[in-house]
């Protein structure tokens, strides 16, 4: 709302030169991410509470650090491809943006495949949802993170489809930058999980 009444404006934290709808959406996205922080905070706390409650079943010793490290590299790399996609779309280079998006989807799917493999391995070694509170908390935390990755993959796929049909513009609900924020958030949650759940427990 551009108005010739600058004297009555007071500077505040959400003013920017960006267009208003864009700014409003980004504000909401950050609020949503703040909410997600509490969501994962509660699950990570549950895990910390139960980190040693293994009922003589498998505990942190079954973690395969080299494998999970590979998964972590994959997810970190997907953040790079995501930010490059975002940057390409900002330059209005839709073609290049799509290529990076496809790369991100591929890395996300690889991460998910790795998680399925890891879960299968752990179940074979005797760690199930019911083995112990440790098992319950581990699967719930990493499972919900995986669900977030899956939702992200779905959103990215939608973006690719929209872009191909020329329906990706600031006037539409979906937006590369917001999806990118979500994707990076899922990545930083994994950074925390990798440190707290894996590296600190072995």
């Amino acid at each position: 709302m551009a108005v010739a009444t600058d004297d009555v404006f007071e500077e505040h934290d959400f003013e920017s030169t960006a267009d208003p709808i864009h700014r409003t959406r980004k504000t909401a996205m950050w609020i949503w991410l703040g909410s997600e922080v509490f969501f994962f905070g509660a699950m990570i706390s549950t895990f910390l509470l139960y980190r040693n409650t293994t009922n003589d079943g498998p505990g942190a010793e079954i973690f395969n650090v080299p494998f999970t490290s590979a998964s972590s590299f994959i997810l970190l790399t997907s953040s790079l491809t995501m930010v490059l996609a975002d940057s390409a779309f900002q330059r209005r280079d839709q073609r290049q943006g799509r290529i990076w998006l496809i790369g991100t989807v591929g890395l996300g799917l690889t991460f998910l495949a790795g998680q399925i493999f890891e879960f299968t391995e752990f179940v074979e070694q005797g760690l199930t949802l019911s083995t112990s509170p440790f098992g319950s908390a581990f699967y719930m935390l990493t499972g919900f993170h995986g669900a977030h990755v899956a939702a992200g993959v779905l959103m990215l796929s939608l973006l690719i489809a929209f872009s191909l049909r020329g329906r990706l513009s600031p006037d539409h609900g979906m937006n590369v930058e917001l999806t990118a924020l979500y994707w990076h958030f899922v990545d930083i949650v994994w950074i925390v999980i990798f440190t707290v759940v894996y590296l600190l427990q072995i």
């Binding site: 509660a42 949802l129 019911s130 319950s136 719930m140």
Partner: peptide, 25 residues
């Protein structure tokens, strides 16, 4: 609401998983 709802959400999921999926939270 933004900051408290996710906490009960985790609790409710844990309750639900305990009831239906055999977790032992």
């Amino acid at each position: 609401l933004i900051l408290s709802m996710p906490v009960i959400s985790v609790g409710l999921w844990q309750m639900f998983l305990d009831r239906n999926f055999g977790t032992v939270f």
